[in-house]
Design a protein around this nucleic acid. Structure first.
Ligand code: FES
Ligand code: FES
Lengths: 157, 157
DNA sequence: CTTTAGTCCGACCTTATTGATCGGAGATCA
DNA sequence: TGATCTCCGATCAATAAGGTCGGACTAAAG
């Protein structure tokens, strides 16, 4: 449950790889093309291409056309959060089916729904978690995260 | 993204309803049948039945057969966590596709995967969040949850 | 200026998952 | 004994995800 899609997975891998090349010691500033990433991580080329296009459209990376073209990060690794990446690929975070109800369509359960409010709080917590973690963190900076829940009881920690 | 299924939604609603009846002031201890819940919340009867069956199989509720039958909570509302409910319906929490890799099948990306470790930490955080929240909490006790992330920056620590 | 390798982009198909349904077996109470 | 209710497996339909294809465009090299 609560699985993120493979596309999102690929996006995370690709971004980290680009960051690694771009800010690494070996060839800093080099553009990275789709093929390179696809082969390195065994990702279907065409699919990865589409993922990268989406990321570019969302302003997370810059695309450079033509031969010797490829992608570059649009911002520093500290300014790209996991939430931004995931939302760019999979759309806005919505833990329940009716988190983002559009005008007109109303959840059948809404009238007597007793779980909407608490679930939205859970959703918000998860969002904070993802939005407080940057690409930089994921690359080995300080990937340590803890949670405190005042509503916890019965579960001794 | 990160959506939980409707079945899980229904499960949460149903459990809260049962708890409300069972521990409420009006008719404490009364068993609740599927039809009652389905009508109250506009849930397809057959589907809800299956959800409740699954919950019963997982030991979260007790089923009473025959006429005047129905369901009762197996434990107190403080001893049932959201994680238990969700996992009972949707299977174990797995944020990535390869979180629970079985023997033999190996993720193609595993070899050079650079995101596995940090993602598992995220997953663990979410699990804690869900496992620290009980049915009691969701029913209006103290639905307040906060998160602290030491890896956060730009956000006051 | 022309060629050419490469990216860009949208449409398309296929498969997996979820949501929902059906029909009968077994249990309980009047 | 008969009516009512839960239990359980199998099954179908809708939706979303994973993956593919072909053409348009762009920039570097000759
Ligand atoms: S499930 Fe839609 S409002 Fe609660
Ligand atoms: S995606 Fe499978 S190990 Fe990282």
């Amino acid at each position: 449950m609560l699985k993120i899609s493979k596309k999102a997975d690929y996006a995370l891998m690709a971004l980290q790889h680009i960051a690694l090349v771009q800010f690494g010691d070996v060839t800093p500033g080099r553009v990275v093309n789709t093929k390179e990433i696809a082969e390195e991580y065994n990702i279907p080329l065409e699919l990865l291409a589409k993922v990268l296009q989406t990321l570019a459209k969302n302003g997370l990376i810059e695309s450079h056309n033509g031969p010797k073209g490829g992608y570059l990060l649009a911002r520093s690794t500290r300014q790209i959060t996991i939430a931004q990446i995931l939302e760019g690929i999979e759309g806005p975070l919505g833990i329940t089916d009716c988190s983002h109800e559009k005008e007109g369509e109303l959840c059948l359960q809404r009238e007597h729904c007793n779980i909407r409010t608490p679930l939205l709080k859970v959703q918000d917590s998860i969002y904070q978690l993802l939005n407080n973690m940057t690409l930089q963190d994921m690359m080995g900076g300080t990937p340590l995260i803890t949670i405190q829940s005042p509503s916890a009881q019965g579960v001794a920690q």
